[in-house]
Design a protein around this nucleic acid. Structure first.
Length: 657
RNA sequence: GCUGCCGUAGCUCAGUCGGUAGAGCGCGUCCUUGGUAAGGACGAGGUCAUGAGUUCAAAUCUCAUCGGCAGCUCCA
């Protein structure tokens, strides 16, 4: 006998085997019709609970007790199930339309799903309509999804007969012999699949093939290339429309588009791919960011330093960065006498040299060396992307040399600084990823015991500081130490790492730079090194910032903070006087004396996203005022010039958003 | 780096069947001197990414190269 406990606490008992759909039917025909899938929580005899999402037609256990939650389209998990089923529908359509196609995998993604196929010729956009039409037929026919279980060996036999060589390989290499696997059948289409699925395609209210691309089998660049088709699906047509509208809107925020439109930066192949030129307006933004960070550095007892962007290769041989990363570095320059120089891909060895330039005492620690360090890396051509992935960039870098006991407080200070940065910019959507060691891999350096302690203290610090969306990823640590990354998304939903804090047990080690300090005990000890950059790089950070603000920068960052617009030529002198006064007060002011009507000047000023426009004519000249129009506030009426300047200075100094 | 798509004026884009190039915005000059999202007239501006090939003729068709975009892979 099976006891089913529902979320409201009510219980139902069954003698024969039932599915969630049977339970739903008993509650009501409406619920049965709306049930997409079910979440089942079972408790084993040892007291462990396991939660599984299953199809509504899958059978529940024969006996025992389960907690059952029926999913309808209102539940957040339901959409993923729908999309996974839609991926099957798409794969079925593709198999019907194209000969010689073999199936790989078809999972869901954040915004939809994809399916990878092996296919002789890649898909073209012309194929999209055909596939969509076939999918519509399949959805209309509304045949149920049906689960089939069998042993691994049976499954392999079946898949071999069907010619699904990729799936066979997956089973043969990835699964133990005695395991049971499941298939889902829908009409003539049978696919190896864990499930769950919607009962039948009728739930798919709207779907669309979005794009096509290539992908590697099992994500390995050494493997064969597959043809991937991306699509998305929703329960309701209006959700799809809203999603497509949102995508259109997001494209308008693209920093590459806005950067060009507002003349913030340029990248030109004649200069070199991935090599950014900051145009005057973009340079203003960068300078404000530098000033902001510099203030923070000084507050937090960092010591600024400068070092060359090119230095002897040997330095990077000592650090281990060369030749290990040679394929992503600009190759060394060899001089006539044989000396080789490398454009630096990292700042740390230079900072290490400063640390090591004299004997250090524990009394000097923590030593915090900061530099806006310009580095160059030869990124793969396919990776280059506006400001977010480039070949030359400047990190807001610093290296902290400290004792093991100081690591936790230093780490916290770095987190605090990064949070200050995010808060000042108004970033609310970000994730924190703690990357830890994979204990099975031999690639790491440093004492495992020290790692364990460090990882624990990092995690503790993160919890104490209430970091949101904290994610711990085992095996993602750099080979030299655990790290914490602050990750945000761009307008297209792609994730980018901005701030980073990394512990380093490698560079100070005897195999590398062999760093020491004299402890209170008079003995020599090895310091711990922390790399940290709250922005990451000015380039990437600015790129994300452009999208974050959609180029409508707050006053303190705006390249042109205020613009004076004259009503007509008669007021040119007054306009110039007002502008001069503002400039003298340290504001970045523009002047529009063009022979246009005021409406046109306002329009241009609005389109240029100037925070404040000041209209001046006869009334203003008489009263010593400006007629202000704020980007956010709209018309603000006449304001005394000195008062307005004081207000702006205040807003600027506060870095108000 | 891989796969696919793309490359026409400063920008956004049109250009049919192969017949030597267009619009809007921007820019310049002049007229207009005006009160909160576009006043008017005239004008300049292109080696159609580059190089080969096919053709009487190439922006258009073919190939190669370079670059861009999307995804994959990578990211000290």
């Amino acid at each position: 006998m099976l006891k089913v406990v529902l979320p409201d606490g009510s219980e139902k008992c069954y003698e024969k085997r039932v599915s969630p759909l049977d339970v739903a039917s008993e509650i009501g025909a409406g619920l049965a019709k709306a049930t997409v899938a079910a979440v089942v929580e079972t408790t084993t005899e040892t007291g462990e609970t396991t939660t599984a999402t299953i199809s509504s037609t899958d059978l529940l256990p024969e006996s025992g007790e389960v907690k059952l939650r029926l999913l309808t389209k209102k539940d957040p998990e339901a959409l993923g199930i729908l999309r996974h089923s839609c991926a099957h529908v798409m794969a079925r359509a593709v198999l019907r339309l194209f000969k010689g196609v073999r199936l790989a995998f078809g999972p869901t993604t954040d915004n939809g799903f994809y399916y990878d196929f092996w296919k002789e010729e890649p898909f073209t956009e012309d194929d999209f309509a055909k596939i969509e039409a076939e999918m519509a037929q399949i959805i209309k026919a509304d045949e149920p999804f049906e689960r089939i279980e069998m042993s691994r060996d049976e499954a392999i036999k079946l898949l071999k007969a069907a010619g699904e060589t990729l799936k066979v390989e997956h089973l043969e290499t990835g699964l133990a012999e005695n395991e049971t696997v499941s298939f889902y059948r829908q009409g003539e289409f049978v696919d190896l699949c864990r499930g769950p699925h919607i009962p039948s395609p009728r739930f798919i209210g709207a779907f669309k093939i979005m794009s096509t691309s290539s992908a590697y089998w099992k994500g390995d660049a050494n493997n064969q290339q597959l043809c991937r088709v991306y699509g998305t699906a929703f329960f309701d047509k209006k959700d799809l429309d809203a999603y497509l509208t949102r995508l259109e809107e997001a494209k308008k925020r693209d920093h590459r588009v806005l950067g060009k439109k507002h003349e913030l930066f340029m990248v030109d192949p004649k200069i070199g791919s991935g090599l950014v030129v900051w145009l005057p307006k973009g340079a203003v933004i960068r300078k404000q960011l530098e000033n902001f960070i510099y203030e923070e550095l000084i507050k937090r007892d960092y010591q600024p330093m400068y070092s060359p962007v090119i230095c002897r290769v040997e330095l990077f041989e000592t650090s281990g960065h060369y030749p290990y990363y040679a394929d992503s570095q600009f190759p060394p320059i060899t001089m006539d006498d044989g000396d080789r120089y490398l454009l630096r891909p990292m700042n740390c060895p230079l900072h290490v040299m400063v640390y090591d330039s004299k004997p250090r005492s524990y009394r000097e620690l923590p030593l915090r060396l900061a530099e806006f360090g310009n580095v160059h890396r030869f990124e793969q051509s396919g990776e280059l992307n506006g400001l977010t992935r480039v070949r030359g960039f400047t990190q807001d870098d610093a290296h902290i040399f400290c004792t093991e006991e100081q690591v936790e407080s230093e780490f916290k200070n770095c987190v605090d600084m990064t949070l200050k940065v995010l808060k000042t910019m108004g970033f609310e959507e970000y994730e924190v990823r703690l990357s830890f060691r994979d204990w099975t891999s031999p690639k790491y350096v440093g004492d495992p015991e020290v790692w364990k302690k460090a990882q624990a203290s990092l995690e503790r610090a993160c919890h104490e500081m209430n970091l949101p969306k904290l994610e711990i990823v085992e095996g993602e640590a750099a080979f030299y130490g655990p790290k914490a990354d602050f990750i945000v998304r761009d307008c297209l939903g792609r994730q980018w790492q901005l701030g980073t804090i990394q512990l380093d047990y490698n560079l100070p080690s005897p195999q590398r730079f062999n760093l020491k300090y004299v402890g209170a005990d008079g003995e020599l000890h090895q310091p711990v090194m922390i790399h940290r950059a709250p922005f990451g790089s000015f380039e990437r950070f600015t790129g994300i910032l452009i999208e974050h603000f959609a180029a409508a920068f707050p006053l303190w960052l705006a390249p042109e903070q205020v613009r004076v617009l004259s009503i007509s030529e008669k007021f040119e002198n007054y306009a110039k006087d007002v502008a001069a006064k503002m400039k003298a007060a340290g504001l970045r002011v523009g002047l529009d004396l063009s022979p246009e009507k005021i409406g046109a000047k306002i329009r241009v000023g609005r389109n240029d996203l100037i925070p404040y426009l000041c209209v001046v004519g006869a009334k203003e000249e008489e009263s010593g005022t400006v007629a202000v129009r704020g980007r956010k506030q709209g018309e603000m009426g006449a304001i005394n010039v000195d008062q307005f300047i004081a207000d702006l200075k205040q807003e600027n100094a506060e870095r108000r958003l």
